[in-house]
Write a protein that binds this DNA or RNA. Structure first.
Lengths: 132, 132
DNA sequence: ATAGTAGTTTATAATGATTCTAAAAAACTG
DNA sequence: CAGTTTTTTAGAATCATTATAAACTACTAT
């Protein structure tokens, strides 16, 4: 299994549940956005079994901490995650309530001119809201 | 009262509560960020009385819809609002969990090169996360 | 292998922000 | 002022997320 090493290297035991979550999240050509509830559904269908919500929350947060997932900063009732962890941005279609990736090349370079003493920039995220 | 007209023009009856909220939010030199709970506290102190949470939620959302407030897109357990409704961006200090304004002039111009058919850009918001 | 231990999963309860409800109060209209 | 509509309110309901603590699983050293 290709994810066993990845998990071990991160200090996470390669359990059946984590491997299954890896399959659903990472074993695909395209990256995608999801909420915990959507992930639960996807696992029910794709792997035809159930992983408890608690585990999904734990695992997704662990993966986020390790940098395998990114949280998308958007005000919504549910938290959105992204399997695309490269530097990139998002459109948010207000009507459809849907996120669309904006590759880095779709956005001109962003220059942050202001500095805060003793702090360094961890990330720069752009959210472009769309209306009709 | 200077806010009576503003409210009436927005189709909102100028009630005692709404006027009080206007005072706290807008009768100040500096703009600021707040959560509903912080607003509740501020009103308790500043106006020395209590407005129910339901009213605070209703009013803040009404003001947002009218463009007097902006929601700040950030993943936090509470929703943050901003009395600065001009185009601008934010630092988010991950350690202190604090928002800091980035004036438009602090960020170079942002060019969105990708277009989505039939949609137009409503807003472009940049969130810059800071770490130590 | 096996026993011990440290980490993980799980169902369920708890939490907490937000929304809903429906009755009382206030603002408006004629 | 009487009637209508809007607003406020306390408290209940909702719903995503987190905490709990017991059962289970993966690992380690023998």
């Amino acid at each position: 299994m290709k994810y066993i090493e990845k998990l071990r290297n991160s200090g996470l035991r390669p359990t059946k549940q984590r491997l299954q979550i890896c399959e659903v999240l990472f074993n695909t050509d395209k990256t995608f956005h999801f909420t915990i509830n959507e992930l639960e559904q996807k696992i029910k269908k794709q792997a035809n079994n159930k992983i408890s919500l608690a585990t999904l929350y734990n695992t997704v947060h662990a993966f986020e901490k390790k940098g395998y997932l990114k949280q998308i900063p958007i005000n919504s009732s549910e938290t959105y995650f992204d399997t695309n962890v490269t530097d990139h941005h998002h459109f948010y279609d207000l009507k459809e309530e849907k996120l669309i990736d904006l590759e880095n090349s779709d956005v001109g370079p962003i220059n942050i001119l202001k500095k805060i003493n003793g702090k360094k920039i961890k990330s720069v995220e752009v959210l472009v809201k769309l209306e009709d």
